[in-house]
């Protein structure tokens, strides 16, 4: 079952510049509109509100007037799992193979018609990127007319999450196939709905395996496991780039970029004094 997640395949990923992100919410709405996400009367309980892309507000914890705010958009992190072998926290626990890891794309899929709603994957995901359909999705009379046929609306009782707009990948693949080069999807042909919508261009999306792609150039992923923690693969060699809860070994494909140290520090947990030792360590020195 263990397959190679490193070569000859796409590894789609994202880097979000938190200094550019303004928390405007375009990515959230673009995602909802692209992926037929429903809405209900009261969405103020954020713990039962389906937002594949959720924007968290971070504060530096200081009091007035030294307070600072940053926004952190959180799509599904499309974890590669420990050692980047494809055993994402959610995929490895799903009892019915309703969520799967695409070794050819690095995308964690969700099969709505197979999921039977045990919610184990939600428990296993530390990012709360997975959402349960507690209610039947209902559109006000007439509004179902704007639903896109590219993404099927989900039924009550199942789990859903960000798919990196997988249908856009399929469209790009079809296009590449049509143009006779089916193995090479162009960077601009496959972009997620949140990426294209972001008015600040804070989101960059592409193939982390492809050095020509912007994500690769920003992230500079380390192909070797972190010598301090062999579960961690693909650590960024850019000192300003981090991943959420990187130390857990989930190996997300969503990276974050910030010049602000306090923001980077909020990406993970550190024991006293650890941050100062760790903050300047950025992957191995060798190149791959």
């Amino acid at each position: 079952m263990t397959q190679d997640n490193h070569n000859n395949a796409y590894k789609f990923g994202m880097v979000i510049d938190l200094d550019k992100c303004t928390g405007c919410g375009s990515c959230m709405v673009s995602c909802m509109s692209e992926n037929n996400v429903p809405f209900k009367e009261d969405e103020s309980n954020k713990r039962d509100s389906i937002t594949w892309m959720r924007v968290y507000k971070l504060t530096n914890g200081k009091s007035f007037p030294d307070t600072e705010i940053a926004y952190l958009p959180r799509p599904c992190q499309h974890c590669g799992g420990e050692g980047d072998h494809g055993h994402s926290p959610c995929v490895s626990v799903c009892p019915a193979t309703a969520t799967d890891y695409g070794y050819d794309t690095g995308i964690v899929s969700q099969i709505y018609t197979r999921c039977f709603g045990c919610r184990y994957c939600m428990g296993a995901c530390p990012y709360h990127a997975r959402y349960f359909n507690w209610w039947d999705p209902k559109w006000p009379e007439g509004m179902e007319k704007y639903l896109s046929p590219d993404v099927s609306p989900r039924m009550r009782g199942i789990v859903e999450k960000c798919s990196f707009c997988y249908h856009r990948y399929q469209a790009a693949r079809d296009k590449a196939y049509y143009h006779g080069d089916k193995d090479h999807i162009k960077e601009e042909d496959y972009q997620t709905a949140c990426t294209t919508a972001c008015p600040s261009n804070a989101i960059t999306f592409g193939d982390l395996n492809n050095p020509a792609h912007k994500v690769h150039q920003i992230v500079k992923p380390d192909p070797h496991p972190d010598p301090r923690n062999h579960h961690v693969v693909g650590k960024s060699r850019n000192p300003k780039v981090f991943r959420l809860l990187e130390r857990l070994g989930t190996n997300p494909k969503v990276y974050y970029l910030s010049e602000r140290e306090w923001v980077r520090k909020q990406g993970d947990h550190y024991l006293e004094g650890e941050w100062d030792k760790i903050k300047n360590h950025h992957g191995t020195t060798s190149h791959g």
């Binding site: 009892p95 019915a96 309703a98 197979r114 999921c115 039977f116 709603g117 045990c118 919610r119 349960f132 359909n133 039924m155 009550r156 009782g157 199942i158 789990v159």
Partner: peptide, 10 residues
């Protein structure tokens, strides 16, 4: 489970 009628998928 959210979809009892599909429980046997397990």
């Amino acid at each position: 489970i959210g979809q009892p009628l599909r429980g046997w998928f397990i």
